[in-house]
Amino acid sequence: MSDPIRLAVVGMGKIAHDQHLPAIRDNAEFRLVATVSRHGEATDGLPFFASIDELAASGLAVDAVALCTPPQVRRSIAMTAIAKGWHVFLEKPPGATLAEVVTLCDAADAAGISLFASWHSRYAAGVEPARAWLAERTITRATITWREDVRVWHPGQHWIWEPGGFGVFDPGINALSIATRILPHAFFVEQAELDVPSNCAAPIAARVDFRDTQGTAIAMDLDFRQEGPQSWDIVVETDAGTLTLAKGGGELSLPGGETPAGTALHGEYPGLYARFAEIVRAGTSDVDVAPIRLVADAFLRGRHIPVDPFVE
């Protein structure tokens, strides 16, 4: 395939408009040919469909789809796309459950389809330099603090509080996607506390203790109730000093004022679409389940603590 990849975007919410559409427009590897949503309207005069089934029945030439729907409905949509022979880009989290993602991997492999589980925070500017620096250090402790105001970042998104919506682990999985990329040893959940509002099915805050295979402690603090300054920080203590990755991976500080190597990526979503084009052209897939596996384990091992109802 040498012509632009003909792409349809499914699920036209905030993330699609804010991140996906601009990244697609700026990447010559792709040509947006349609959008799909239960709500909304056509984009740039392109064909618009109310469902993936309508798109599939239309006869429109499509090579790939980017799925930006809530995770609870993503598996069935992805299976329809795979059955049509379309490559699939999954917004994070890639599914409502780990088993769903594994099933999609198996289906894509059987069909010879490229499947991409996109972890956008891994494409932040500081992540790869942090990974390279930590690879040569002994880690003594790590702390993950992800605190944001859900009313600002997820206004009106009721699906996030439903089963499979992840609650505070929706942003928390961004932190885990970075941590599983930069930390040199695998880590696992030892214990967790999940604060669940009495009117919700998913947590509004969580505290999780991890330990890696070398015995190093990793503590994570997530909270959707943060007002004022927001925190998206990972601090890693090592034998050579402390590394701080702030602003969701966008700002890296090393001990002694060292200047990290630069990155060729310009923004997270442009990096994601460059990677998606790469695997489509190569006929491969890129699906790392480590972040969603850790979230599943936090729910498995977590103690649920009832807290006040959440009212937006």
Rank of each mutant, 00 (worst) to 15 (best):
M1I: 13
A8P: 08
A8N: 07
I15Y: 12
D18F: 13
Q19G: 10
H20I: 05
A23T: 04
I24W: 00
D26T: 09
A28E: 14
V36Q: 03
R38Y: 12
R38C: 12
G40A: 09
A42S: 12
T43W: 15
L46D: 02
L46E: 05
L46Q: 07
S51H: 05
S58P: 07
S58Y: 04
G59M: 08
C68V: 14
T69K: 08
V73T: 14
I77A: 08
M79L: 15
F89G: 00
L90C: 05
E91K: 05
P94E: 08
V101H: 04
L104D: 04
I113D: 00
I113F: 06
S118C: 14
H120C: 11
P129E: 01
A132T: 09
W133F: 03
L134H: 07
R137A: 08
A142K: 02
D149G: 06
V150H: 10
V152F: 11
V152P: 09
H158D: 15
I160D: 05
W161F: 06
W161Y: 11
P163G: 04
G167T: 00
V168L: 05
P171I: 00
I173K: 06
N174K: 05
L176C: 01
T180G: 01
T180S: 02
R181Q: 11
I182E: 02
F188G: 14
E190R: 12
V196E: 03
P203G: 00
P203Q: 01
A205C: 08
A217N: 12
F224Y: 15
F224T: 11
R225D: 14
D233Y: 10
A240W: 06
L243I: 13
L245G: 06
L245Q: 03
G249P: 04
G250P: 10
G250T: 13
E251D: 14
L252C: 08
S253E: 15
E258T: 11
T259R: 12
L265A: 14
H266L: 15
G271R: 00
A274M: 11
R275D: 15
I279C: 05
R281V: 01
V287Y: 05
L294Y: 07
L300R: 15
P309K: 03
